[in-house]
Nucleic acid binder design. Sequence first.
DNA 1: CCGGAGGCCTGATGGC
DNA 2: TGCCATCAGGCCTCCG
Length: 275
Amino acid sequence: MPELPEVHITVAALRDAGLVSRLIQGAQVEWPRTVGGDPKAFSAAVAGRRIADIWRRGKYILLQLKGPPAGWIVVHLRMSGRLYLSAETPGEYVRAALNLDDGRFLCLYAPRRFARMEYRQEIESLHTRLGPEPLEPDFSPDILASCFTGTRRAVKTILLDQSRIAGIGNIYADEALFQAEIHPCRAGESLSEAEIAALHAAIVAVLQRGIQNLGTSLGHGKSNFSLPSGEAGRNQEDIRVFRRTGLPCVRCGTTVQRIVVAQRGTHYCPRCQPP
DNA sequence: CCGGAGGCCTGATGGC
DNA sequence: TGCCATCAGGCCTCCG
């Protein structure tokens, strides 16, 4: 399940592979919904455009097109998506692909068809819909505290709310709460200053570790995350609590519990993370 | 404001 | 072994 670290390293890998400054010659769309429902409109919008830059915002991958006019290709991997460059004709499960002027294809692989690759004339609305970036230098405990104001929702629910804070998904939410020793159902506004500080440090740490480890490959088979190169990440070896239901807590030995929060499987240690 | 359900999807999994 | 129901979950929309 690609979250901020997986998206981050996907962007870095594509940049290293020379995606920037390539000319898009056309688009192949296998599943219309992937590109917003209208393959012809998508192809027309991107054909002949040059890729000026690539980065990410939250879990979104942003391909800025050289203007004028301003234009962007916004990619979201959702559950099972991967984005990679390939010299070969797009194969099974590739829902959309851009053919580039160097003969390669930028392929959006998505067994479950959830992933999206859409053309936008602006991304301002995306920025306003998303909360702060947890790995930006200005992300402080105070900023995190402001994510929790004015709501009594569970802290895990807030961490998953992209409009409150961008980029965190189910795995890293559980890992951060475990590291900070905070129960996932604690009301966000009930957290003390010290707990906010601990959670802030934990969020930054688990995301940075995820990036250093080249992502978490905890999916199953075809849905498993891997780098654009096809290489698996190794952050799953550093996972402390996620999907360890019934196993001893790595910190205290207490049996890890699984509950459902915000309709997601949620894993925690009942002793290290008391209610 | 909030939470819950349903929808989108299909490979993996577990029960019988 | 094989079949089938269930699960997984990011994000959106609808509903109470």
